[in-house]
Computed example of a mutant assay.
Amino acid sequence: MALTKQFLKSKPVCKVTFTLPAEATTESKKVILLGDFNGWDPSEATPLKKQKDGSYKAIVELETGKEYQFRYLLDGEKWENDWQADKYVPAEGSTDENSVVVL
C-alpha cells in the first residue's frame, strides 16, 4: 500500500494516489475510499479501480495544509486501513483506527 502525493504549483491542491495492494483485497469485487473528504458517505465514496496486478487505485485531489482521515471499504462489509498511512487516529465511536494522510 502506498500514498503518493503530487503537490500542484498552480493551486493549493495535492493529487493523492491511494493504493490498496492485491494481498489486502483478497478476492474483493468492489473497493471504495471513504473519509473526511467525502463525508464518510458511501453514495459519495470514491471507487478504486482494479489494476492488472490485482491492486486497487484511485486519485483524489485534496486541499493542502490539512489532515484527512480515511479507510477503504471492501465489498460493503470489510474495513481496511492503509498500511503506509502518515499516521493513525482512533475512529469516533469505535475501537478501530482510521488512517490519516497529512498534506
Rank of each mutant, 00 (worst) to 15 (best):
I32S: 09
L3A: 01
S99Y: 04
E97F: 11
K57Q: 15
T26S: 10
P47E: 14
I59Y: 00
S43R: 04
E80W: 14
Y72C: 07
S99R: 05
N98W: 09
A24K: 11
L8N: 12
S28Q: 02
A2Y: 08
W83R: 15
A91I: 01
P12A: 11
V89G: 12
A22M: 02
T19K: 07
P47A: 10
S94A: 06
A24C: 09
T17A: 05
T95K: 09
K78I: 14
Q51W: 02
Y88G: 01
L3V: 02
P90S: 11
D96M: 13
P21W: 01
A22Y: 00
G35D: 12
E92A: 05
N38M: 13
K87S: 14
K5C: 13
S55P: 02
I32T: 11
K29A: 12
F7C: 06
I59G: 01
W40N: 12
K30Y: 02
L103P: 03
K78M: 09
K49A: 02
G65Q: 08
Q51Y: 04
V100D: 14
A85C: 10
A91T: 01
Q6P: 04
K87Q: 14
L33W: 00
N38T: 13
G39E: 13
L74W: 00
K30V: 05
L33H: 00
N81I: 11
T4Q: 08
W40G: 08
P47I: 07
G39V: 09
A85L: 12
Y88I: 00
R71P: 01
L20K: 00
E44L: 13
I32R: 02
K5T: 06
K29M: 06
P42I: 14
K49N: 04
W40C: 10
L73R: 02
K66V: 04
D53N: 09
V13S: 15
T17H: 03
S28E: 08
T64I: 05
K50Q: 07
G93N: 09
W40E: 09
K30A: 08
P90T: 13
T4R: 03
S10F: 12
A2D: 12
A22E: 10
E80Y: 15
V100G: 12
E80P: 12
